[in-house]
Amino acid sequence: MPLIKASNVSARKKAQPVATIDRLAIARDLESLDVDTRIAAIRLAARFGEAELLTRHLAAETDPVLRETLLTSLVRIGGVRAARPLIALLATDDASLRNAVIETLQSMGEEVLPEIEAQLENQDSDLRIYAVNMLLSFRSPRVPDIALRVIAQDPHVNVCAAAVDVLAEVGRPEMVEALQAAAARFSDQPFLSFAVRAAAKRIG
């Protein structure tokens, strides 16, 4: 019979208890040149909820396949713990990474909405625009009111324009007045008036 009994090395009956796994080795393995070692380390780090470690590595990881694995792991960790370090990456100059981070945050569900909402106070208008653009994906009943607050308060026309687009999708008829007020606030920006008219027509 040429078939042999599988060795114990290939598959032990029981994995070791969690406590015996060397967590320091995970961080070291993330730096390995070997892709298999890095993927295994990413999966173990996710199992331990090491969102910050993974996000730090995400910024340094150049292999697109491993980036995908990192993002999958961060979605699995989910919640505020994964969202906070990811949000910090929104400021990156790497457009591909930034877009991947945005998609990942959007897939994390409503529980990370407060973290996104907090970015509406960020001094960087680009970050505020990203935050507004992400709102629709959360399908939360709070989204229209958040967007309404943006068009009433935000000093940057492009941030307001992004919020107008959100309201065009999920706004309510009573919000038309606030939209028109936003257009008036930026009366020297005809494109915003145009966007407001389109939004008002849709929801009014």
């Binding site: 290939s10 032990r12 994995a15 796994i21 999966r43 996710a46 199992r47």
Partner: peptide, 10 residues
């Protein structure tokens, strides 16, 4: 489960 399957290699 990354802990359980880490012995399955090669």
């Amino acid at each position: 489960d990354a802990i359980e399957d880490r012995f399955y290699r090669g």
